[in-house]
């Protein structure tokens, strides 16, 4: 368990760094990071299920500049790992029913921690405004390195705390007999689908012509669902 927590903290730190500081390649997106977390715990498939559910929610929270948004990089790998850890000992639906809301909660806390980091960076910058005004290359590079290091530490700490809570909790929850757990995944899928579809409308409806592309997409989607459900 300690090794799992430490490795997941390192993974969360690296993926959390990707959100803003470096390199913003979107390896922090839930689709990627939860799958990686699940793969680390030996079940990439369950990690992907968790990642897809979180990804559906993530469409509503775009990383616009100074706004506060959930931080998926340190939270999603822990959620994916928790889902996989629960699935290894018990029920997949109950594991996901814990892992997905837990991932959302951790992402929210991660977002709060990013605001604290930005305030810390601002204090560091404010103290060095004179050196910046003198054109000190060392100060410029130092602020960049300090910011990235603090972000890496922040994300690692969030991931470690989340893993310490999530792994034992999910292993307990997944083995509890819960007859209603058959409704868990449809409920999560309904919520995720609703949020993603609503977010797509909010993002795209003001662009000319998108309505017909959306209608065409829905028609193709409905046709494929109908064919594949029968198959």
């Amino acid at each position: 368990m300690i090794v799992d927590v430490l490795v997941l903290a390192a993974l969360g730190a690296i993926l959390g760094l990707d959100v803003v500081s470096f390199p913003q390649a979107q390896i922090s997106r839930p689709l990627v990071s939860a799958t990686l977390g699940g793969a680390f715990m030996g079940n990439a498939g369950v990690g992907l299920l968790c990642g897809v559910l979180l990804e559906l929610f993530a469409h509503e929270t775009l990383p616009f500049g100074a706004s506060r948004y959930p931080e998926w990089g340190s939270s999603s790998p822990i959620a994916g790992a928790a889902a996989a850890a629960g699935a290894a000992v018990g029920s997949v639906p109950m594991s996901l029913l814990f892992a997905v809301p837990f991932g959302l909660l951790t992402a929210s806390l991660g977002g709060w921690s990013m605001v604290q980091l930005r305030q810390l960076n601002a204090r560091l910058a404010r103290r060095r405004l004179d050196a910046l005004a003198r054109g000190s290359a060392r100060t410029v590079a130092g602020l960049q390195v300090a910011g990235a290091t603090a972000d890496l530490s922040r994300a690692g700490l969030v991931a470690m705390l989340a893993a310490i809570v999530a792994l034992p909790a999910v292993r307990w929850i997944a083995v509890q007999p819960a007859p209603m757990s058959v409704y868990a995944i449809p409920m999560l899928a309904s919520l995720g689908g609703a949020v993603a579809a609503g977010a797509a409308w909010k993002m795209f409806h003001s662009t000319s012509g998108t309505r017909w592309f959306g209608v065409a997409g829905l028609a193709v989607g409905a046709l494929l669902v109908s064919l594949m459900s029968r198959g």
């Binding site: 662009t207 998108t210 193709v220 989607g221």
Partner: peptide
């Protein structure tokens, strides 16, 4: 670019969300 990406995104959302939900539910019929 933003216009065409928005159109592509809308089309993909229309196809992807129902299919993703279907695979998440995984069985149980139509």
């Amino acid at each position: 670019g933003p216009v065409w990406l928005a159109r592509a995104g809308t089309f993909l959302a229309g196809v992807a969300v129902p299919l993703a939900v279907m695979r998440l539910v995984d069985g149980g019929g139509l």
